[in-house]
Design a binder for these strands. Structure first.
Lengths: 246, 246
DNA sequence: CGAACTTCTCAGGACCCTCTGAACCGGGGG
DNA sequence: CCCCCGGTTCAGAGGGTCCTGAGAAGTTCG
């Protein structure tokens, strides 16, 4: 069976081969980071720096999904989208757009089921969105069923953003939600504060690791409140999320 | 079973194969957006930019429905319609027309069971109209029953435009109706303001996402008034419609 | 032509989220 | 015993998101 570098079972194409993703961004550092994060999911990744090479790469790779910066040196996102669809009509696209350019020309982009995130984003968010796109497109053979993430009696529905523990509803802020999602996707594994910071916080975040401790404390209050704790501290190493009865 | 990219069961042809739709518009951006929205419904879509290529595409695709711009560079929509009918006599047509265009000529055409929408339109509207055309033509085997949409005790009849909650009639303005329809077609799923804007508002709308908040507030006053709320805000993410008892 | 309605902009304000700084806590080592 | 260290928690500033009311412009309809 196909497994990710992270040890989790990979989300694969219906025929069992790894999902193929193309990353298009003119900032090579960002493209590299994104590629790394997606490759970590066990997917086959290639990247391009402009619209023209994006097309040639797409023709070769025949990607299931494309992560596409809207601002490219040669063409605009809409034109690339059109050409991509002529190459592979059922391709999913996740657009990356600058916060201040928001809404200026997103019109219609999400209409086809495609999605977008605004810069600066967190890697966890991008990965989650791509997964969501592929899942909804029926492109991914889901090894776990549906949009549900389960660890012990803790359940997260990624579509409705609902989180319950032992059936009780838990209200979370956006950052709390993303942090918990990251923990739940890596259960029984110690995650260092640096790792968490890299994945859950946006790449331009300047703050210290102290926020992670803070948000872990918030989560404990909501998730572990009065119950058998699932979030554990490993001194000098990081944090683990574990079901109460392994 | 054939499912849409949105996860809903697809509206299929009587023999179970996906419905086939041809989009004809000379604005490539608009054609792209329309194709995307229709493809998202699980239908097989092709597009053309003028009357001549529309015919060749039609001969190949044998579409069940055609979305047809009345103003084309080479011929006018009515000529195309006539040729289409020689290719496939029982094809349904949804005309796209400018607001100030001659509506009386259109009126004659729609007598034949065809329909039209005026530019600028919302994607939700176009998709709903095409669905309606096919349903009425008996072209579509309806997997869910009829023109009725139900979420909890909230019921919408798409044909009569009647909406009731717990049997009580709710009066809605056109925009409120379309917004609610979009929510009801995607229950238990967080919809971002951008997503809603792309789908429910016309493609040329220049305003900000703030209107969505406003209309959600209107809907709440009518749908949730004094009752257990069904419309929920997910801060930083969007809105969800959920039945009170899942 | 006027009335009712619909849509959208604007502005005020409430509330929530995030992050900083500092106090606190408990264990281990000097 | 005291101090250091990693971790936890509290309090609060500031910034942002979201809600709502008022009203202007446009549209529909009698």
């Amino acid at each position: 069976m196909n497994t990710t570098r992270s040890g989790r079972p990979a989300l694969t194409r219906p025929d069992g081969t790894p999902l193929r993703v193309l990353v298009v961004d003119d900032d090579p550092d960002l493209a590299e980071v994104l590629s790394g994060a997606l490759r970590y999911e066990g997917w086959q990744v290639r990247s391009a720096g402009d619209g023209a090479s994006a097309l040639t790469e797409a023709r070769e790779l025949m990607p299931d999904a494309v992560v596409l910066d809207v601002m490219l040196p040669d063409t605009d996102g809409f034109a690339v989208l059109r050409s991509l669809h002529t190459v592979k009509p059922d391709v999913c696209v996740l657009f990356l757009t600058a916060r201040d350019a928001v809404e200026d020309r997103i019109a219609g982009i999400t209409a086809g089921g495609d999605d977008y995130v605004t810069k600066p984003f967190s890697l966890e968010e991008v990965v989650a969105r791509v997964r969501g796109l592929l899942r909804r497109a029926g492109m991914a053979r889901q090894l776990d069923e549906g949009p549900r993430l389960t660890v012990g009696d803790l359940v997260m529905d990624e579509d409705s953003h609902e989180v319950t523990r032992a059936g009780e509803l838990i209200e979370l802020s956006p950052t709390e939600f993303e942090l918990l999602r990251f923990l739940m996707r890596n259960p029984r594994r110690v995650l260092s504060k640096a790792q968490i910071l890299d994945r859950v916080w946006s790449y331009d975040f300047g703050g210290r690791a102290h926020v992670v401790e803070l948000y872990i404390s918030y989560l404990r209050k909501k998730v572990d409140a009065g119950r058998e704790p699932m979030i554990h501290t490993v001194r000098g190493a990081g944090y683990v999320l574990k079901p109460v009865t392994p």
